[in-house]
């Protein structure tokens, strides 16, 4: 877990595939890269078998670009569409049994802190709405209540997309799906509310039709999870297969849903604000001068 693990064994460099050589020589490891630079460096995400035009893929790609220290990051996932791409990246990936991802990440975070002490090692959980809000619900909430210091990202496609279109806890009320022909009878679960109640230090909703915002949100969430406490991001990543969205209209749908019911929200505790402004120079979280406070 350092820059060494992305280097060649001496003498073997020329035998490596081109993708591997590009990753070592032109990857983001040890550099600061941003979403505006994509296309000019080798991204850590590789080819994967996810559907063409999938918004979840786009979100995962942007998230991988946004990791503050990819060489010190471990991703944890579980069954679902997302892991098909997350596992195809040049960062270590741990596969938790279905629903176990936050439990696995808790142990992993604690172990890494024992082993590496103060050197930050980021653990990022990325799983779908089924793995997090339904089957992994208990482990997710318990990890938050225990204030485990890692980032949890929900790839919310509002359906079990991998198994034929069953309703999940995050599906909207009255939504008809292939395996929910009468429509869902209950409201969408308020995971954001639960994240705040259970003590997450940073909670945000985001839609991938704004790449820079995705980048900013992921960076903040990972940084907050290093020192302050758990962070949670809920991302709308539509399933163009189960919701029958033409692939070239996926971003149009994302835009519509964002204005309709998935507006960008951000919740951050005062402690996290202070931490981000002091250590990482986030000026928007600096305490306002007395004059500005009076004007309000």
């Amino acid at each position: 877990m350092s820059l060494d693990y992305v280097k060649f064994t001496p003498g073997f460099g020329k035998f490596m595939p081109k993708e591997y050589r590009d990753m070592v020589e032109h990857g983001p490891f040890g550099k600061k890269v941003s979403v505006s630079q994509v296309g000019t460096f080798k991204e850590i995400l590789e080819e994967h078998p996810m559907c063409a035009g999938c918004a979840m893929t786009l979100f995962i790609r942007l998230a991988m670009v946004a990791f503050p220290n990819p060489e010190d990051t471990i991703t944890v996932g579980t069954a679902g569409c997302g892991r098909l791409a997350i596992s195809q990246a040049a960062v270590p990936f741990v596969y938790g049994n279905y629903g176990d991802q936050n439990g696995v990440a808790s142990g992993l975070t604690r172990g890494l802190r024992l082993r590496f002490g103060d050197r930050p090692k980021d653990v990022v959980v990325m799983a779908g709405d089924g793995g997090m809000a339904d089957i992994g619900f208990a482990q997710t909430l318990h990890s938050w209540f225990r204030k485990e210091k890692f980032t949890t990202i929900m790839l919310d496609n509002e359906v079990y997309g991998n198994t034929g279109g069953q309703e999940s806890g995050m599906t909207n009320r009255n939504q008809v799906l292939k395996m929910a022909p009468l429509g869902k009878k209950f409201e969408k679960m308020d995971m954001l509310g639960m994240a705040k109640v259970s003590g997450c230090a940073y909670v945000a909703t985001v839609v991938p039709n704004n790449p820079r915002r995705v980048e900013s949100v992921i960076k903040k969430a990972v940084l907050v999870a290093r020192e302050i406490g758990p962070s949670y991001i809920q991302a709308y990543t539509s399933c163009n297969i189960e919701y029958a969205i033409p692939t070239d209209k996926v971003m149009e749908d994302a835009k519509t849903v964002e204005t309709d019911r998935y507006k960008f929200t951000e919740y951050i505790t005062d402690e996290a604000k202070e931490y981000l402004s002091q250590l990482y120079g986030y000026k928007e979280y600096l305490p306002k001068p007395a004059a500005a406070v009076e004007k309000q």
Partner: peptide
């Protein structure tokens, strides 16, 4: 603008030559 490089769901697919 470079927007397409940021919105492509596939990594390393739309690249940019300055």
């Amino acid at each position: 603008c470079k927007l397409c490089t940021q919105y492509c769901p596939e990594a390393n697919t739309i690249l940019y030559d300055n």
